[in-house]
């Protein structure tokens, strides 16, 4: 296997909430390899979102070291983190976070306009099966459709890594499976390193590797010998 894309060593994150210090992550080590599909599994409060935020350059660890290829993310300043997100990362969120004033096509174009080697927005939307909904606004689409637009937006710039935080959390089972299929296809077709965080254990079967977290620490790591197609998942 190639050298890791992400390499996190001994990262901790401590938040101050009022007068209380909350430890969200404590001394976590994690590598992420090129092209792999990783599922980060854990109950809420286990620290998986914090870990993802640190990998995605949204947050800095209180301690430890994170590297993305040759970038040191743990000591980067805000402009450097912004540049990192802009050039290398695609995000998918639980609540889609689309811009309500922009159509599907424009939401994707928003990102492709600032990317260096993007695919056309139409192509990205076609990949997620929304080639016929290009000019719809978010308020005119279902939750599943909105999430597929969000995925199209994330993959359109051909990111090195796709980070998905509870992408099916707000969706019903059938719609959720369709969204996961789209993610798996993007991972396979484009070779994008993908991390999905979820509390839904059923999703683990579609991953190359599954990492379980509890109370801010990694408690188990499993490599699947076979990736189950998303359409066959049940929950």
């Amino acid at each position: 296997m190639q050298s890791p894309v992400f390499r996190a060593r001994g990262i901790s994150k401590v938040y101050r909430v009022g007068d209380v210090l909350v430890t969200a992550l404590s001394r976590v080590d994690l590598d992420l390899h090129a092209g792999e599909l990783l599922v980060l599994l854990g109950p809420s409060g286990s620290g998986k979102s914090t870990l993802l935020n640190i990998l995605g350059g949204l947050d800095l660890p209180s301690e430890g070291n994170v590297r993305f290829l040759d970038h040191d993310l743990s000591s980067a300043d805000d402009p450097a983190l912004t540049r990192f997100r802009r050039e290398h990362v695609g995000f998918v969120f639980q609540f889609y976070n689309l811009i309500p004033s922009l159509t599907a096509r424009e939401n994707v174009a928003l990102v492709t306009e600032i990317a260096s080697r993007p695919m056309p927005p139409e192509e990205a939307l076609d990949r997620v099966g929304l080639g016929d909904r290009l000019d719809h606004f978010p308020s005119q689409m279902s939750g599943g459709e909105q999430q597929r637009v969000a995925i199209a937006r994330a993959v359109a710039k051909r990111p090195d890594v796709l980070l998905c935080d509870e992408p099916t959390g707000a969706l019903d089972c059938e719609t959720g499976k369709r969204v996961l299929e789209v993610l798996a296809r993007a991972n396979q077709d484009l070779g994008t390193t993908t991390a999905i965080i979820t509390h839904n254990a059923a999703i683990a079967a579609m991953a190359d590797r599954v990492v379980r977290m509890r109370s801010g620490a990694i408690v188990e790591e499993v490599r699947n010998s076979v990736r189950v197609p998303a359409s066959s998942l049940e929950w």
Binding site: T82, F93, R153
Partner: peptide, 16 residues
């Protein structure tokens, strides 16, 4: 707020 935060996450600079 959410929309602007999303934009920041997507890689738009503060200035943009």
């Amino acid at each position: 707020t959410r929309e602007l935060a999303s934009l920041r996450v997507l890689g738009f600079t503060r200035r943009e």
